[in-house]
Write a protein that binds this DNA or RNA. Sequence first.
DNA 1: AGCGGATGATTGCCAGCGCAACTATTGCAG
DNA 2: CTGCAATAGTTGCGCTGGCAATCATCCGCT
Lengths: 152, 152
Amino acid sequence: MVANIESGRLEAWRSFIRTHSVVVRALERDMQAEQGLPLTWYEVLARLERTGEGRLRMQVLADSVVFSRSGITRLLDRMEEAGLVERQPCSHDRRGWYAVITPKGRETVERARPGHFRGVQQHFLRYLDDADVRALQAALSKVLAAESPLLQ
Amino acid sequence: MVANIESGRLEAWRSFIRTHSVVVRALERDMQAEQGLPLTWYEVLARLERTGEGRLRMQVLADSVVFSRSGITRLLDRMEEAGLVERQPCSHDRRGWYAVITPKGRETVERARPGHFRGVQQHFLRYLDDADVRALQAALSKVLAAESPLLQ
DNA sequence: AGCGGATGATTGCCAGCGCAACTATTGCAG
DNA sequence: CTGCAATAGTTGCGCTGGCAATCATCCGCT
């Protein structure tokens, strides 16, 4: 039976989406409660900060955090209103804009980082030994390399 | 530095959420286009069908697919309207309801199953060999066992 | 028996996000 | 150099789902 051959692999898929839902939900709750920061905001800030310059074109940022273009527009509207990011026109392409992290944005992400890491640890990493983490990374990298628009 | 020790592990976490977003997004698009069925609908139908009886209490179903109680109520409203499920009062607890898959629901999930599997294969499983799948399953099971409300 | 806190499900309300349509700009083809 | 398809970003609109409040029912305790 095809179903029997496939069942273990499909089972792994089910574990994957279920784990994601459970863990992200818990982490989101913690981040909101303890840092007063939605997970998506943290991810955007962390992503911008990691560039050094602290800025990224809208589309690139959208791909990074896997959002639609409209999604990233609105997300940045909110974060800009909160003073965590700014928009900067792109000098060599007048259609384009940079999302730029502000000093307040940097402070915010710095302050939230330990709590974020604690949450990831608490709900996910603590259950995995080094071999697990390596295997996970190896497997997911293969998927990402093939499926992800840009291999960040 | 703490950051250096942790970086590989956090990196694995980032791969995890990014992979989920990318793959689920692609699968969702495919399911909608090819089966005319949102992924969540498929998951609910598949979960109900797997019980044999074809029914589950609302709360149990909500936990299964990792939805809030209100979320599952509305999802079932829509699916009931489409004739794929029904609500059945629970005889020994008059507060409770069963979500029951209808014959049409069974047909629908049967018809969608191959396409769903193809999508999971296409966007995820094809990149993983058996060792990857086993390692993934082993790692995620540990997380689920500890973090999941009920270990389905 | 009967009260009080816990539990099952639904509802009001609102935030978040995607799709498609739109505007502005770019850059390639002829 | 002109025109036209492609691309960057925003906006109108609608769907989805969560939180908190609500209602009904259950159950443990006295």
